[in-house]
C-alpha cells in the first residue's frame, strides 16, 4: 500500500507537469481550433534559458524561473504576431504546417546554441524524502505538485475572475461579436500564445531535473500532454488538468506494476488517445458538439 501511494505521488508530480503542457495545448486549441505542435519545443527552449541564467549567469533559481517564463510568454506572443498571423487568413492546415516548421526551427536552434549532450538541471528542492504516515515522499515531487497547482490555479483565476480572461474566452468563442464589443481578437490570440508558452515553460522547468535537459527533452512529454488533453477534452482547461494528473498516475503505476509495459509508456499514451477518440471523442470534460447535417 505504501509503495502504491509513493507511486501515486510521483505520478501526480509528473502529471502536474503534463497538465501544464496539456493546458498550453488546450489554450491554443480553444482559440484557434488547432494544435500548436511546437508547444513542447517552446517549453524546452524556455527551460534552456532558465538553465543558462542559473548555470552561466548564476541567477538564483526563483528569479531564473520567473524570467524564463516571462521570456517564453513574450517570445511566443511575438512569434504569433510576426510569423503565425500572416497565415491565419489562409486554410487552417497552413497554420498547422507553420507550427511544425516552428518545431523544427526551435529544436534545431536549441541544438545549435546548447548542443545535444544532456545536462543535469538544478532543482531548489532537497533530494531527501519526507515520511508521511509511513509513506516515503520526495520533497521534489511535493514541490513540483505545489508549483503546478499554483500555476494552474492562477490560470483558473485569470480566465474565470478577470476582465482579460472573460475577453479572451469571448474572443475564442465568438470572435465576430467580440470585435463589435471592442475586443482586439488578434491581440487576445497573441496573449493566448504567450500564456500557453508560459505554462509550457513551467512544465519544462519542472520536468527538467528528472528528464535531463537536452533539445529533444519534451518530445515524449508533448505526446503525453496531447494524450492528457484529448482524455480530458481538447477544448476543456479543467479536462487538461485532470487528464494530465490521471495520465501521470497511470504511467507511474504501469512503470511500477507492469514492468513489461514500462518501455511502452509512449505507446500506452497513444493508445489512450485512440481509445478516447473512439469511445468518447469529446473527452471527459469537453463540449459535446452536435452538428446538423
Amino acid at each position: 500500500m505504501t509503495y502504491f501511494l509513493q507511486q501515486v505521488v510521483s505520478g501526480l508530480a509528473a502529471g502536474g507537469a503534463y497538465a501544464s503542457l496539456a493546458l498550453a495545448l488546450v489554450l491554443i486549441y480553444s482559440a484557434m481550433g488547432l494544435v500548436n505542435f511546437a508547444q513542447g519545443e517552446f517549453a524546452m527552449f524556455a527551460t534552456f534559458i532558465a538553465w543558462s541564467l542559473m548555470v552561466s549567469l548564476h541567477v538564483p533559481y526563483g528569479i531564473a524561473f520567473v524570467l524564463a517564463v516571462v521570456l517564453a510568454m513574450v517570445g511566443a506572443a511575438v512569434i504569433e504576431r510576426a510569423i503565425v498571423r500572416p497565415f491565419e487568413r489562409g486554410p487552417q492546415l497552413s497554420v498547422v504546417i507553420v507550427t511544425l516548421a516552428l518545431l523544427a526551427i526551435v529544436n534545431g536552434s536549441a541544438g545549435f546554441i546548447w548542443g545535444y549532450v544532456p545536462k543535469p538541471f538544478p532543482t531548489p528542492f532537497p533530494q531527501s524524502p519526507v515520511v508521511i504516515a509511513g509513506v516515503y515522499i520526495s520533497i521534489q515531487d511535493i514541490g513540483v505538485i505545489a508549483v503546478s497547482i499554483l500555476v494552474l490555479g492562477l490560470m483558473y483565476l485569470l480566465f474565470n475572475h478577470t476582465k482579460l480572461g472573460l475577453a479572451m474566452r469571448t474572443a475564442a468563442l465568438y470572435p465576430d461579436s467580440a470585435r463589435l464589443l471592442g475586443v482586439s481578437v488578434g491581440g487576445m490570440l497573441a496573449i493566448g500564445w504567450g500564456l500557453a508558452s508560459g505554462v509550457g515553460a513551467v512544465s519544462g522547468i519542472l520536468l527538467a531535473p528528472s528528464l535531463f535537459l537536452e533539445p529533444n527533452m519534451m518530445q515524449q512529454v508533448v505526446i503525453y500532454a496531447f494524450a492528457a488533453a484529448v482524455l480530458g477534452g481538447i477544448d476543456s482547461p479543467i479536462g487538461a488538468v485532470v487528464g494530465g494528473l490521471l495520465l501521470g498516475v497511470l504511467l507511474a503505476l504501469i512503470g511500477a506494476y507492469i514492468p513489461v509495459l514500462a518501455d511502452l509508456r509512449l505507446a500506452v499514451a497513444l493508445l489512450l488517445i485512440v481509445v478516447t477518440l473512439v469511445l468518447r471523442p469529446s473527452g471527459l470534460f469537453g463540449q459535446v458538439h452536435t452538428r446538423r447535417v
Binding site: K163, L166, A167, R169, T170, L173, Y174, D176, S177, A178, L180, L181, G182, V183
Partner: peptide, 25 residues
C-alpha cells in the same frame, strides 16, 4: 455600438458576463 443581425449573443456565457463584455472598452 453595433447590435448585429442575429443579436450576437454570447450564448455560453451568463447574462451577467454578456453585460460585462458590453462594458469591455
Amino acid at each position: 455600438g453595433h447590435v448585429p443581425e442575429g443579436r450576437g449573443t454570447l450564448v455560453q456565457l451568463s447574462v451577467w458576463d454578456n453585460l460585462r463584455m458590453g462594458a469591455y472598452t
